[in-house]
Design a protein around this nucleic acid. Structure first.
Lengths: 337, 337
DNA sequence: TTGTAGGCGTTATCAG
DNA sequence: CTGATAACGCCTACAA
C-alpha cells in the first residue's frame, strides 16, 4: 500500500480507504489509486485486514462427516449458506462434529474463541439432545439448522415436523385408511418425538382407536423398519397403512412387506419423512415429506450474519413449513380391499 | 501473553514459544506457563499467529456445488483431506467452481494471492478440459483430484480409468460375451476418452470385429443412455452386452432394455463406471468400477501439504488403481442364449 | 476529503 | 534455553 501511496502522492490511509471500499474518497483519487494498484500488480492482503478487524472472515459449518456430508440435504443447506454468506463477505469452513475434537459444543466454541471463525452454523437434524444441549450459552454466535434448540443464546432454524406428519396422516385418512400404524424414531431426537406426537394427536382427533402395538419402536434405520413391520404385519389386526418416522424406516417397512408377499401400495400404504433423494428413485416411489433445505440454509445464515455484525446473541427460533409429496407408495383403500 | 509473561516472570517470547509448542523450552518453565495460562482463561489468537506467519491456516477445497457436493464420492474425498490436513494444522474452506466468481482457475488463484487460503484442492472428476487447463501454472499450490492435469506446477491425483475399463471388458469376455457395445461419454472429458480408449484397445487385442454403430455417443446422463441403448438394441446385430462409460449412462441403458421387454442380465449384460451409491441399491445392482475416493483425498492432501510447507511447486501425478465390482447386471452368456 | 500516529497479537531475529 | 526489539499489513481514532 505504501508503494501505491507514494506513486499516487497520497497517504497509505487513503489507499486503504479506497481498497477496502467502505469509506468516502473523492472519485478522482479513487480511480488513480485503483489504476496504480493494478499497474503495480498489488494484491490486497485479506489476512492482515481481518487481523486488524479482529475477525477471521470465515464461518464454521459443523456437521457429522459420516451420515450428513454427502447427502443432497446437506448440499442444499450449504448452498443456502453460501448464497447469503458470500454476499455478506464470509467464506465457509467445514468441521466434523464426529471427530474426537468435537464431542460437544464447548470444543466447537474454541474455534470462535481462538478467532478461527466468526460464527458457527451447525447442521444437525436428528442430533442427540445431549450434543444440542451442549451448544447452549457458549457465548458464541451459533445457529443450529434442522433442530430446535432450547437456549436463549443459540438460534435455530428447523422445519415443522408436527405439521408435516399431520399432513401425512390426513393424506392416508382421505384415502380411506383407518387402520394406521406408526413406527417411531429414537426417543432422544426431538424430530422423532414431534413426528410421533403429531401421529398420536391425529389419531385422537379423528377418534381412531388403535391397539397399543400399532405404535412400534424404530431407530430411523432400514433394519429397524423391517423388524417393526414384521410385528405389525403379522398381528391379527393388520394395519392398512404404516407411517414411518423417516424414509429409512419406510424403506425397511416396504422391504418387509415385499418379503411377506404384500404389494405396496395395493395391499399396504407406506409413508416416510425427509424425502431423501432415493425416496423418489425407488420402486415404488415413496410418499414422504420434503424439507425446504436451501431455504433453511439461507434463513440460518441470515440470522448468523445478524448476530455476527451486531454482536448480540439474541436467539431467534424459526420453523419453516414443509410439504408432503404424494408418490406411489400410498393408494386409496377401497381400490383393493 | 504479556499478562502470562508478567505472572510467570518470563518474557512474552517464552510464553509464545510454549504456546505455539514448536520450540524448546525447559520443562519447568513450560508447565508454569501452561498452568498460568489456564488460570487466566487465556485463549490463543490463531488469527494473529497466522498473520505473523503469513499464512491463513485454511486450505481451499473447490468443487461444483451442484453435482458433486452432496455425493458420497465427494464426502469420501473430503474425509481423506480432513484426515491429513487436520493433522498437519490446516482447516478446510469450501468454494464453488460453478459460481460466477470461479469460471476459471485465475479466480481461484486470487484466494491464494489474497492470503485467504494457503493452497487449493480441486475436486474435479469429469470436468471440462477448458477449466482444467486454466489451472495450469497459476503459481499457487494446487492439487486436482479426479482428473489428470497436464502442467508442470499443478499436481493431480486421478484413478486409472483405462485399467478399470479393461477389467470390465475382460469380465464380460470371460462371461462369454463377444458382441460388446459401448456408450461413450462427453469427448471433452479426459475420463471419458480414457475409458473409450480402453474399450477400443480391448476389442483390438481380442480381435473383436464390431460394427461401427457399436460405438454410440453419450453424455454421461440417463437420458443419453436410453437413446444410445435404443439404437443398439434395435439394430439387426444386437449386442449381448453394453458397456456404459459411467453409471448414469448404464441406468439409462437398463431402463431402455426394460421398456423393450429385455431382462437384465438374462437377455443383456450392462456395466457402468464410478460406483455411485445408487449403483448397488438399484435392481439389478450394477456391475461397475469403484474408485478409492478417500485414498485419493488423502494422497492429494499429502501432496498439497508438501507443496505448502516446502514452497516448491513441483508437480506430482498419481494414478490410483481402481477395482471392478461384479454385481447382478452382468451374467454368463450361455446361461440364456 | 485526507493525513498522522499508534496499535492489533503473534513471531523472527539476534544477542546473551 | 531465554530476552529485547522490530516487524507483519492493515485499520481505528483523531486531527487538519
Amino acid at each position: 500500500m505504501e508503494d501505491i501511496a507514494r506513486e499516487c502522492g497520497v497517504s497509505k490511509m487513503t489507499v486503504s480507504r479506497v481498497l477496502s471500499g467502505r469509506q468516502v474518497v473523492s472519485a478522482k483519487t479513487r480511480e488513480r489509486v485503483l489504476s496504480v494498484a493494478k499497474s503495480l500488480n498489488y494484491e490486497f492482503n485479506t489476512l492482515a485486514a481481518n487481523f486488524a478487524l479482529k475477525r477471521s472472515g470465515f464461518v464454521g459449518v459443523a456437521t457429522p462427516f459420516v451420515g450428513l456430508l454427502g447427502t443432497e440435504y446437506f448440499a442444499a443447506v450449504f448452498r443456502g449458506f453460501q448464497k447469503v454468506l458470500h454476499g455478506a463477505g464470509w467464506d465457509c469452513a467445514l468441521f466434523d462434529t464426529l471427530s474426537d475434537a468435537f464431542n460437544d459444543g464447548v470444543k466447537l466454541a474454541r474455534l470462535y474463541r481462538q478467532k478461527k471463525v466468526d460464527g458457527l452454523l451447525i447442521v444437525a437434524p436428528h442430533m442427540h439432545d445431549r450434543f444440542l444441549e451442549s451448544l447452549s450459552d457458549l457465548g458464541v454466535p451459533v445457529v443450529a439448522i434442522g433442530e430446535q434448540i432450547d437456549s436463549k443464546q443459540v438460534s435455530s432454524v428447523s422445519c415443522d415436523d408436527y405439521q408435516g406428519m399431520m399432513e401425512v396422516c390426513a393424506h392416508l385418512y382421505e384415502l380411506g385408511h383407518r387402520e394406521i400404524a406408526f413406527v417411531k424414531g429414537p426417543q432422544d431426537l426431538a424430530t422423532a418425538r414431534d413426528r410421533q406426537t403429531a401421529y398420536l394427536d391425529f389419531c385422537r382427533r379423528e377418534s381412531l382407536e388403535l391397539p397399543d402395538d400399532f405404535l412400534q419402536s424404530g431407530e430411523y434405520t432400514i433394519q429397524s423398519g423391517k423388524v417393526a413391520a414384521r410385528i405389525l404385519l403379522e398381528s391379527e389386526r393388520r394395519p392398512t397403512a404404516i407411517v414411518a418416522a423417516n424414509d429409512f424406516t419406510a424403506f425397511g417397512v416396504i422391504e418387509c412387506a415385499r418379503e411377506m408377499g404384500l404389494r405396496v401400495p395395493e395391499d399396504l400404504s407406506v409413508t416416510g419423512f425427509d424425502d431423501m433423494p432415493s425416496a423418489s428413485e425407488r420402486h415404488p416411489a415413496l410418499t414422504t415429506v420434503h424439507q425446504p433445505a436451501m431455504e433453511m440454509g439461507e434463513a440460518g445464515a441470515d440470522i448468523l450474519v445478524r448476530m455476527m455484525t451486531s454482536g448480540q446473541l439474541s436467539s431467534a427460533k424459526i420453523s419453516l413449513k414443509v410439504a408432503m409429496v404424494a408418490r406411489q407408495s400410498t393408494a386409496r383403500l377401497p381400490a383393493t380391499n
